[in-house]
Design a protein around this nucleic acid. Structure first.
Lengths: 209, 209
DNA sequence: TTAGTTACCTGATGC
DNA sequence: TGCATCAGGTAACTA
């Protein structure tokens, strides 16, 4: 049913090569392999109980077009900074005239501890445009998680209070890390151990492009 | 499409004979004619806006098995305490791995004024296992309906606060009455005039087995 | 337009 | 513990 699939055949070496960092400031260059599609500053609804991410229409129609054969929605796969595969149901809601990621999205939000104001980035492979990538940056990086659960501490981009749903020019960042190239068949295995609602702490470095 | 049909050919006498009461306490005996299948204490969702009854999987698979030819669901018919026929759509929801009664269920809930904690009983005919019966008991029987609409006043079983979805041992009850053996083609004719939410009043004796 | 119906989805829970 | 179940939801279609 899904057109794109997270590749599970790539060697770790290949993946590292593909993800070599590029620190060109103010651009969305990713060496030769990745191309930025768009990013979105997360709204409270995007990380709340609605379990869905609204994708700005302009980007959705450009990068994830739905034709009549996929009017019921698609299953899209995205690799995260560790190479892990996340599958999201993608569809169009007639009632709100919006494109959304639904099933699977809430698991991602929880796993990454995303909060309003955090930004998610969507990229694709230059040579294989159906191979997608997702990463994020946290809005604030000064506070720490109470349990010391932080897995990294790189300071990164600062984001203003803008609530605009997308932008494509203020990105810096770009780092390397994370190595597991396995592609889990499903993402059910990662549940956060607590249900704390501590906003705006940095949880992961999440820097990889 | 429906396999079972409420019988409309039985004489009233036959029906009365079949429903002779059996007051054996603590058992689910029903004379010679009816066999208890299962019962369920209704949850708020079972009587709320979701318009569906979740049937515990063990009972569903035992008594209402769905094969490939009925994967789209079945129309099941049940006779109530008055001999009236109720038809419910019965199907399996892949997403939640649950068996449910959908279409028709909300009409039954409204007609019988069912509330959370009330218990519905499902039985079948010993000699004709495709002939099903449904009845219920109210959780509390001390208060009266506001409009004085009670059609009977037999005190019955008391139910604890158990929220377990099913049980098969705590039943007493068993009475006789009600006589109409006609099987209405559809149940659209009985809509309650109000949407009151007065919990736990006894509405009907609903005792007939 | 609304209510009813179908078919999705998810968190909590218990084993 | 992971997994199966189910109570409680949502979105879309339709009459």
């Amino acid at each position: 049913m899904s057109i794109n699939q997270c590749s599970s055949s790539s060697s770790q070496e290949e993946w590292l090569k593909n993800n070599v960092r590029d620190e060109t400031e103010g651009s969305m260059m990713f060496g030769e392999t990745k191309e930025a599609m768009f990013e979105k500053a997360l709204t409270p609804s995007d990380v709340g109980k609605l379990n869905r991410l609204v994708i700005p229409k302009q980007h959705a129609e450009k990068y994830f077009p739905l034709d009549s054969s996929s009017s019921k929605g698609l299953l899209l796969s995205f690799e995260d900074e560790s190479g892990k595969c996340w599958r999201f149901r993608y569809s169009y809601w007639n009632s709100s005239q919006s494109y959304v990621l639904t099933k699977g999205w809430s698991r991602y939000v929880k796993d990454k501890r995303l909060h309003p104001g955090d930004v998610v980035f969507f990229h694709r492979h230059r040579l294989h445009p159906n191979r997608f990538f997702i990463t994020f940056s946290t809005r604030h990086s000064t506070s720490s998680p109470p349990g010391g659960g932080s897995q990294g501490e790189n300071e990164r981009t600062r984001w203003g209070n803008s609530t605009s749903s997308s932008s494509s020019s203020s990105s810096r960042v770009l780092r390397l890390f994370g190595v597991n190239m396995e592609c889990q068949p499903e993402n059910d295995s990662q549940k956060p151990s607590t249900k704390q609602h501590l906003f705006y702490h940095t949880h992961q470095p999440s820097l990889f492009f």
